[in-house]
Design a protein around this nucleic acid. Structure first.
Lengths: 336, 336
DNA sequence: AGACCTTTCTAAATCGATATAGATTTTTCT
DNA sequence: AGAAAAATCTATATCGATTTAGAAAGGTCT
């Protein structure tokens, strides 16, 4: 028989196991591992050594049941997808930032045609996560309001009207709009069509204002497309842009808030006999670098969602662990 | 005072609450809700009515601690992404199939440069999910072997060598290869370059064999590119295809296993003075419908990952709930 | 009526962790 | 030395569910 007490084979180590191996009571072991102040340093070292040796990992159900903490962060996403779909990268970067922490990521999709509040209420009511990450935020987002009212930790990708009070990461689309317009004007364009983000999204306002400010500044004309937005399916978007160009032949520049809209816009050019880079330019903000492969000459700026993902993940964890601290907030300045 | 016993405000309903409201013991309530045979029908009806009324939802931590069942299905994904990134759709469709079930989806990303087994071992050892969904499966996939050895429920997106013994969904890439080649030959092409899937992936073999069989059948030549595969970054892939075309000017058709490879191939054509649809054709299998917007004339077949997602989700749930039943297996036949 | 089944329910233990209160031991102070 | 204070540990209860064993109630049979 070995001198050192051993773990039985196939046994999943619990605090009880460590208790048996160390001769100390279970609560002592628990407190030692949680670095409680009333445990001797030597004891902590001893217990940690055993825990390490036998590969102890706390049982999440036990922790969750007792403390209510789930160590889960829920990413709540719309199921609406398109090729401009950077969801995969967002998920990876969030998960990457949680590597080595006790947190797990949970993806909760919702169907936008259904009740947008449903997954939020479910998570809060059943406490199935410690924090929520939201995207596609509207200015007076109902979800944000609800979460603030319930003092439930959350982070937004994109700002809300109340974003000074909660953690967020956002890409400064006012600057995008501004610089996009300046880029087109620098290429001699004077009548710009803006295919803006979906109207309810807050960043639509930012981008439009950025464009308008620059346009006023430079004395050129910018028109926001009256019907379509950058999340429109490509086929109807192509048709709409086509007829807009026919009705407004003076348009010599298009700013698109998405890769998809840029593709459709470029497609519409051909149908009305316009030539990209020659008598008209197209600018697009894209979250996946692909337009450069699509057609040479499209002007672009890249929004890196992996940076966003890493930030919101860290912000969410901070909101859970240090609720007292000021919320992590970041407004990324595009530079182009 | 109201006749009917009520739920205190703000109280989260548990079995204990129902017990109090119904006057029955907690285990009775539990057994009634789980439809145990030793509970009177009337009692079940009564208890279910109360549960419904107060909106009872079982506490997952409680269930998990007692039973070991997590009601979680883990999707284990590589963090390596590209624009051909259909991850978002896959996730949505899996989650969609789990709507209305007690199951939640958990996304566990891994970094391919690290130990591919790490997340698998973690999940199995800590029982942090009831089942695992794998993709990018290799013929003798280490993960598949491990999960089979441990009798842990799992589903693969793509086949393994042992796929007759486990649930899977796969797109029949042998047919893709076969029909792709036939399509090119029908357009008069006789010397085909195949940019195949990554060599370690099982479906590379399927696709290559499909091509070869059709080529032998029709008496034309097909060459698998010696170095690059369809997951290569676009820049090096473009260069490699370019030099291959220079060395092999007789090539008049390219079959690509991905959208990204097709884009790069098309880009390389221009650099060697070849004209798409004129003296050469490109065929691609894509999981996001986008090439039609990229350049007219690229031949494509679409692999619908949402079908795959829905299937693997249902298969995973079945593997958990009816472990005795034969595994759900499906080989999707492309039709074009 | 009494023995013997069924049917239906309840009491108690349990999963693995942590919080609380209290019991030791050790140290400090007078 | 003896008392008080501090440091360190343990016993017990608890989170919410399920499992097991057994109790109570009801019915059937001789």
């Amino acid at each position: 028989m070995s001198e050192e007490k051993q773990l039985e084979k196939g046994e999943k180590p619990t605090l009880k196991t460590i208790s048996r191996l160390s001769g100390l009571a279970v609560p002592t072991v628990s407190r030692a591992l949680n670095d409680a102040p009333d445990i001797k340093k030597a004891t902590k070292v001893k217990i940690r050594e055993i825990a390490e040796r036998i590969g102890y990992v706390p049982n999440r159900a036990g922790v969750r049941l007792r403390t209510g903490r789930t160590n889960v962060i829920s990413l709540v996403l719309s199921t609406q997808h398109d090729l401009t779909n950077h969801t995969g990268s967002l998920i990876s970067s969030i998960a990457g930032a949680m590597q080595g922490t006790p947190f797990h990521m949970n993806v909760t999709p919702y169907f936008p045609e259904e009740d947008i509040m449903k997954p939020i209420r479910y998570i809060v009511e059943t406490r199935s996560a410690d924090a929520i990450i939201l995207n596609q935020v509207t200015p007076e987002d109902e979800r944000v309001k609800y979460l603030m009212d319930h003092k439930f930790p959350f982070v937004t990708h994109g700002r809300s009207l109340w974003c000074d009070q909660h953690p967020y990461y956002d890409f400064d689309n006012e600057i995008v709009g501004n610089l996009a317009l300046r880029r087109l004007v620098k290429r001699g364009r004077k009548n710009i069509l803006l295919i803006a983000p979906p109207r309810d999204q807050f960043y639509a306002k930012h981008m439009i204002e950025g464009c308008n400010a620059a346009a006023a500044d430079l004395g050129v004309q910018v028109t926001t497309h009256p019907t379509v937005t950058s999340d429109f399916p490509r086929v109807p978007l192509t048709d709409e842009v086509k007829s807009f160009l026919l009705d407004n032949p003076n348009i010599d520049g298009i700013i698109c808030a998405s890769t998809s809209a840029a593709m459709a816009s470029v497609a519409s050019l051909e149908k009305v006999g316009r030539t990209l880079g020659d008598d008209i330019d197209v600018f697009a903000k894209e979250a996946v670098s692909i337009l450069e492969w699509f057609r040479p000459g499209i002007l672009t700026v890249f929004e890196d969602v992996t940076a966003a993902g890493a930030f919101v993940a860290r912000a969410a964890m901070q909101a859970v662990r240090q609720p007292g601290e000021p919320p992590m907030q970041f407004l990324e300045k595009p530079d182009f």
